[in-house]
Design a protein around this nucleic acid. Structure first.
Length: 136
DNA sequence: GTTCTTACA
DNA sequence: TGTAAGGA
C-alpha cells in the first residue's frame, strides 16, 4: 500500500496519542469538536487516530504552546471538513489487525514513519516532539 | 482497565 | 481545561 494510505490508517487509541502528543484527552477531544482533526471510530465508538491525525495534533500543540487560540489555529491550518480528501481510514480489516498490535509496535510504526513518510515542512517539528520516545 | 459523553465545585 | 459521574 502507498504512503498516503499508511499515513491515514486508523491505528492509535487516544491513550497512546495522549503520550505521543503530550496533550490531555480533554484537549484532543476538544480539537476534534472544532474539526481540527477527524479521527475514525471503531464499531464500539472508540476513536482511532492515524499518523496524519497525530501529526496535526503536534502542529496544534506547537501553536498552542505559542499562545495561539482555537480561532487562530483554524486560520493557520486548513480545515479538515473534506471527508474524501485525507479522511482517516478504518476498514473492518484494519480495525481487527489493529487489535493485534502492541503499544511497542505502534511506537515502532511511528518511528518508521519519521524516516519514511516525511512531508515537507513538518519533519523537524515531529522529530522534536517525538524524540523523547526514541533513543538517539 | 480504557474510553465515551455530558456537565460544572 | 480539569475533573467527576455513569455507561459501554
Amino acid at each position: 500500500m502507498g504512503d498516503e494510505i499508511r499515513r491515514n490508517m486508523a491505528l492509535f487509541p487516544i491513550g497512546i496519542v495522549m503520550k505521543l502528543t503530550d496533550l490531555s484527552a480533554r484537549q484532543i477531544r476538544y480539537y476534534e469538536q472544532h474539526q481540527l482533526i477527524v479521527p475514525a471510530r471503531t464499531s464500539g465508538n472508540q476513536r482511532l487516530f492515524s499518523f496524519n491525525d497525530v501529526e496535526r495534533l503536534l502542529e496544534i500543540k506547537a501553536l498552542i504552546d505559542k499562545g495561539v487560540n482555537i480561532a487562530g489555529i483554524k486560520q493557520v491550518m486548513n480545515p479538515v471538513a473534506k471527508e474524501s480528501q485525507d479522511a482517516t481510514v478504518l476498514t473492518d480489516d484494519t480495525e481487527e489487525k489493529r487489535k493485534e498490535l502492541t503499544d511497542s509496535q505502534l511506537y515502532r510504526m511511528l518511528k518508521q514513519q519519521l524516516v519514511t513518510g516525511r512531508r515537507p515542512g513538518q519533519v523537524s517539528l515531529i522529530q522534536g516532539e517525538l524524540s523523547r520516545f526514541f533513543k538517539s
